[in-house]
Structures are given as C-alpha cells and as structure tokens.
Design a protein around this nucleic acid. Structure first.
Length: 487
RNA sequence: CGGGGCGUGGCUCAGUCCGGUAGAGCGCUGCGUUCGGGACGCAGAGGUCCCCGGUUCGAAUCCGGGCGCCCCGACCA
C-alpha cells in the first residue's frame, strides 16, 4: 500500500481489497493456526444479527434448536459411501486423548448428518413421531488446503438443519421451504439477491439425492454459494436404521433433509456491498446503525454538544434503533468518519455548535445516491423521527443496486463454450445456457473456461425463451444451467 | 504436492550484496493545545533481528540445517 490509510482499490486487486477490508474493518483476524480465524466483535455482531433473523424464520416454520456433539465416531462417517468419499480428504481426526491412543478415532464434525440421524433412529418409532424438525448452531471443521477469511476456513460457524419425514414428497417440500427462507433472508436482510436452483450431480452434497443452492454474484462477478438445502432421500435413514411404522402399519425408512448457511455469508456481505472506503452493512444487520459524532470546540459549547449527542442517541434507541455516541476525545472527527465508514455503519450523525444553534443535525449516509450531497442538514426532530424510514430506504436501495448488478451481469441465450469463455474472460457473471445433462460438458467448461455449473435455474430464474441446444453443441438442451467462476 | 517470495518493535518495512553501537513511518503511553473529512507539540515505552549450529575478536548481515507464513498452480461438501 502506497498510502497506509487507504485500502487497495477493488478495481486494482479485488482479493487484496477483500483481505484488507476484513482486517481493517475489524471483522476478523488471523489466528495462530493456519486456516482458522478469530471473528472480532464487529464481525460477530453482524453474524449474531444474521443468526437472530434466520433463527426466527426457522422457529416460525416449526423448527426447534438442539445441540449435537463435536466428535463423531469414524465408523459413523464411513457408513454412507458417497458421504465418506466426499469428506475424507477434509477430515480432522482425534486419535489420542486422555494420554492414550483411542480405540476408535473420532472425527471432528465436518457436518452432522451421521450423528444426528443415528440419534433420530433412537427417537423415532412411529409416524406420529414425525416430522422431526431440528436445527443446530455449531462450528464445523473441514481441513482446507487454501483458506480465505470467512469464505473458506478450516473451522467455521454455521447452522445445520436436519429433518426427518414420513414421505419423500414432504421432505422435498421441506427442502424447498428452506431454500425459500434462505433466499428471502439474503434478499430482505443482506440485500444480496441470489439465484436459486438445483445442483448438478457433480456439485451436489456428498450423500444427498438432490441439492439446491442459493448462488450470489459478488462484485468481481464471481459466484458465491451462499446456502444449500439438500433432499437426502432415504440414504442416511437406511444406513442408520432410521425407521418408523407407518399409519398403515408398515415399517418404512424416514426421508431426510439437511440445510445450512455459514459465516461465509459475512464474506458475501462484504463482497456484495463494500466499496473502496470499506464495507457497507445493510441497516437490518448492522450491529450499530447510527453513530453520532460530536464536534467539540474548545469553548463553552462543548458540554451542550455532548449533552445533545447523548440525548439524540437515547431518542434513537427509544425508536428501537442501535445507536451510539462516539465520544472518544483523543480521535479527531475526521478520523472517526473514516473509521465508521470502513466498518460500514449505515448512518452517521454529526452534531456541532453550529447545528446546535440552528436546531439541526448533519446526516451522512454510508452510501449516497448518485448526485446527492454527502451530508444533509435536517431539523433535529425530523432527523430523529425519520431515522427508521431513512434506514429502511437505504436497505431497499442496497437491494435494488445489487439486483441491478446481478441482472446486468447475467448473460442469457449464450450458445457456445467459446461464447461462455469470452464472457467470463471479459466482464464475468452468470452465464445461462442449455445443457444436455452430460457431466462431460461440465468438465469441458472447467477446462476451457475455469467455470463450474452453479445451478440448474429454478423456474423463476429461467430465460423467457428456453435454450434449444446444449452449450456443447451436442444434442438438445434438457435444462437451463448457470455457469460462473466461483469462490 | 510443484513453482516463487518472505520471516527485524503492535503494523508496514529499510538495513543483509560489502560483518563493527538495531533504524524509519504509522500505531501506543503521559501532559498540553486541538476537534465541521485521516490534528499538532513535548516527553516516553516498546526488539531472544524465526530457531539451532558453525565461521569470526565481533553476525540481523557470511555458511549449514530446521521451522513458519504468504502468493501462484493442483485440489475443494
């Protein structure tokens, strides 16, 4: 960095920008163990707000929280063939404890299907015990070769929902219900509009029958898998003997789903809204929505300014907002502006002697609309009373901007691998094409374009005119698939 | 695992080629003056120069070995 105070601009080096902004906005820091990270209060505060919103949505749809243990017997993981093959390279295993070699190695959970369905097998006897709708907030570990803060770390935080149902249809409905919840959360809370769809066989969860995903487009026009919801069929039920007696008296295997989002979402948030000044946190997720900076002159106005700042903060809190006065006296106001902008606080209020005299407050939004002034001077009463609406308007604008960017970088009616390559080597984005369903086409795309199939688009994301031919030129299209370079 | 780079104060780094009192900027502490977009003055704290061994009167610097981290590639539910 030529200037230590400035971040590397996004356009110059997006990856460098991302790392700097995560560190300098104090979202996270590297830990002594390679590939793991410390989530600092500002980053954790964002995660807590995400958790609260998602948890409310899960509860509203009948789910309950529980907690299953960190350590899983190795033999459990090995029970489901595809599952073990998918996870084997990433497992961290405890072989020694209490000063002795363990008789059976214990896996630090990379995900909890095996332990959870083994327990469900104990708890479920009858169709009357179904459905089981549980979620857990937990940490998981997947040993990664190359890591990036929030986006890919060996240990991360997430929620994993695991349900058991009497019928496949019901389980499939659950899978899609959760996919919808994820999508709604990403739009309404994160202002990060994903496209949704079905994962190809090569991209699906190891052990699932079908995986659905939310894929969001980052500002560098790479895709981020932001949430997944899996229809597991009876794969795990069969391996863990999760059976129930049906209404008709038949013994049947239960049908399962599992679904999760992780702290990766924080990384997605950064790459969706951040700019060269720092991150931008949508108001609904911001740990601090309004920061108040008093401008203190070395005269007799100082006390009055401080009192007004405290009063405004109180009144904003009475409106249910998260507001705070930054009353540090060893940092100049300008320095505070930069700091809170870097951290993405949606709204800043400045109060100085001049404002006090005029009965006004200076409002500075984290991002200002095209052509608008950086600061707005508003009568105090109106500024306070109108703050919730201003924040909601900001939230809505962030979503609109992200939607616009996503749609501007969605390329439809693309007919050849060469064309896909041209787009991805150029502007980048989501490329919609026809596909015959052959995995060989995915390999071709990977070799030629460094792109993977992100999803087979859900109905509402499909093009008005369905593609006729597969992008490979080989046969008619069976489905419309979205390609992108991905995180 | 292959290729490249780097380990010096909290951070970013200079010094290493050519051995001779360990430095700068930022940050930090105290006091004072400041405060409407990254303040200033004065005083101060802070270092096993990644580790082990060797050469030398003397090693951050030279030699040997080891460890760690970062980047690129491969891999990636």
């Amino acid at each position: 960095m030529a200037d230590e105070k400035k971040l590397t601009p996004r356009g110059e080096d997006f990856a460098a920008w991302y790392n700097e902004v995560v560190l300098r906005a104090e979202l996270a820091d590297y830990s002594p163990v390679r590939g793991s990270m410390v989530i600092r209060p500002w980053g954790y505060g964002i995660w807590e707000n995400m958790q609260r919103a998602l948890d409310d949505m899960f509860k509203a749809t009948g789910h309950e929280n529980a907690y299953f243990p960190l350590l899983i017997p190795m033999s459990f993981i090995e029970r489901e063939q595809e599952h073990v093959e998918g996870f084997a390279p990433e497992l961290a295993v405890v072989t020694r404890a209490g000063g002795k070699e363990l008789e059976e190695p214990l896996v630090i959970r990379p995900t909890s299907e095996t332990i959870i369905y083994s327990m469900y097998a104990k708890w479920v006897q009858s169709w009357r015990d179904l459905p089981v709708l549980l979620n857990q907030w937990a940490n998981v570990m997947r040993w990664e070769m190359r890591t990036r803060l929030f986006l890919r770390t060996s240990e991360f935080l997430w929620q994993e929902g695991h349900t058991a149902h009497a019928t496949g249809e019901e389980a499939e409905r659950e899978t899609l219900l959760i996919l919808g919840i994820y999508r709604r959360f990403m739009e309404e809370w994160m202002a990060m509009p994903p496209i949704t769809g079905l994962k190809s066989n090569s991209e699906k969860f190891a052990g699932a029958v079908r995986s659905y995903a939310c894929e969001a487009l980052m500002q560098d026009n790479k895709a981020l898998q932001a949430g997944t919801s899996h229809f597991l069929g009876q794969n795990f039920s069969r391996q863990f003997d999760l059976k129930f007696q049906s209404e008709a008296g038949q013994e049947e295997y239960a049908w399962n789903t599992s679904w999760g989002v992780s702290t990766r979402l924080v990384g997605g948030l950064v790459m969706t809204h951040g700019d060269d000044a720092g991150i931008v946190v949508p108001p609904r997720l911001a740990p601090l929505q309004v920061v108040i900076v008093p401008i203190l002159k070395g005269d007799d106005t100082a006390a009055a300014v401080k009192a007004k700042a405290a009063e405004v903060a109180d009144r904003l809190r009475e409106l249910g907002l998260r507001a705070r006065v930054d009353d540090r006296d060893n940092v100049s106001p300008g320095s505070k502006y930069y700091e809170w902008e870097r951290k993405g606080v949606p709204m800043r209020v400045e109060i100085g002697p001049r404002d006090l005299a005029e009965g006004k407050l200076a409002l500075a939004r984290r991002l200002v609309p095209e052509g608008a002034k950086r600061k707005e001077f508003v009568a105090e009463g109106e500024a306070v009373a109108g703050m919730p609406e201003r924040l909601e308007a900001f939230q809505a604008e962030l979503l609109q901007a992200a939607l616009r960017r996503r749609d501007e970088h969605s390329y439809r009616g693309v007919k050849s691998v060469d064309e896909v390559k041209e787009i991805l080597d150029g502007p980048g984005g989501f490329v919609f094409t026809g596909w015959n369903g052959d995995p060989a086409v995915e390999q071709t795309m990977k070799d030629a374009c460094k792109a993977t199939s992100r999803v087979v688009a859900s109905e509402e994301f499909r093009s008005e005119t369905p593609p006729e031919r597969c992008v490979s030129g080989d046969g008619p299209s069976q489905m419309e698939v979205v390609w992108a370079r991905a995180y």
